[in-house]
Design a protein around this nucleic acid. Sequence first.
DNA 1: TCAATAGTGTCTGTTAGACATTATGGA
DNA 2: TCCATAATGTCTAACAGACACTATTGA
Lengths: 234, 234
Amino acid sequence: MRDRTPSHSARAGRSAAVSLDIVLCTPHGRHLAVLLAHAPSGDRERWTLPWAPWRGAANDSGVDESAEQCAAAALGLRPAWMTQFGAFGDAKRHPGRAALSVGYAAVTPARERDLPLGAEWFPVTALPAVAPRHKAMIETAVAALRDRMDAAPIAFRLLPTTFTLTDLQEVYELLLGRRVHKASFRRSLQGAYLVEPTDEWRSEGRGRPAQLFRYAPRKRRSGRRGVRFELLGG
Amino acid sequence: MRDRTPSHSARAGRSAAVSLDIVLCTPHGRHLAVLLAHAPSGDRERWTLPWAPWRGAANDSGVDESAEQCAAAALGLRPAWMTQFGAFGDAKRHPGRAALSVGYAAVTPARERDLPLGAEWFPVTALPAVAPRHKAMIETAVAALRDRMDAAPIAFRLLPTTFTLTDLQEVYELLLGRRVHKASFRRSLQGAYLVEPTDEWRSEGRGRPAQLFRYAPRKRRSGRRGVRFELLGG
DNA sequence: TCAATAGTGTCTGTTAGACATTATGGA
DNA sequence: TCCATAATGTCTAACAGACACTATTGA
């Protein structure tokens, strides 16, 4: 590290304990919920994110595939969408003492199905104590979902295959953490050609029934936006 | 990995060879340039990204600090801005056979100063052959810089402390890969309160001299944007 | 004087948000 | 009937981009 030409130095010989950690999210009323698993009884915290050690690309499966397998095991089925959001390797404690933890954010629709034993959903606003590194990872993961929901179909993957436009708007509000203007939201949505109506309607108590839609992106937007400056400082 | 409750399984016992890899960028005419270092003579490719093995948080320095040290060693001074953009652990070959490579994107202004021996700038449009994993990392890093330049002062860190508005616009065009409207660009910039004028002017051949500005963010924008749908499919 | 670049004022089309209105069900 | 929710039309303010114009230097 002190060498001025690092690539001359050495092979990556010695190694570090690496974990893959999953922040799996689902809608839960007005908030997101995160999947946590019972920790072994010796642990300081009773709950942890689902995670798995990683020992290198063994059977041709890289980190991303291994993380998907870990998520599928924790949830009981494959998440609807998943992305890597960062590698954490600082002094913050990991439940498995991993030196480096690669974080994955994943989403799945709300389900009736039972979870595997020991797993449970917790609203992000009411999390139990978790290891400091897991706490940081959850915050980063939720921020990553919010930041990328305009460029990836995250909101649609948090919903079942058919949904009402109000459902969709509520998912956006839940992820963005703010209210959204209804007419404006629907205009934008229409212009983006992302959904198509089905011939089904859903009656939710009283009030006019809502039409069900499905995610069906049809057209690519030119996407030419003006230059935006959202800098806050530094 | 096959266990349904992964956190019950084990500690992160066995380990993997981890590398930190730096995609260091600077402006170079109409394009970005990336810093590459001579590879050891036994290597298949003659050039590599600056990188360093990582063996775990030794002397209280986590991955991010270690990566900064690696970047500073390769450049001869600390980069002006730096961020992690992803962890790569698939079948693609790394020059040091690292199982997992954590990638960092960094920027620095164009300099007259000499580089450390063995290091050289290459335009991203004319890169020599590098290991497949490094090729993928360079592409991801440049995309990450483009994506985040509206939320982080990346363009300003690619410039010296004082610069003309045309300089700044050219950096935006270089990162975005498209032309930008001059009057519109300056209006947006004014509204964002990000720069302040100095009392210096620079004469560039003929034509009216341009005033020099410095980066001095003063105000936070409310930032309430409407919901955007930039999805392309999938 | 001309050429070249800096910097600005005005117009127009697009769009986000506010507001109002109609539509359609259940209680 | 009344109420709640869905869905949509209209107005306005903000803004991006086009265009034209002025300003100031060197050749």
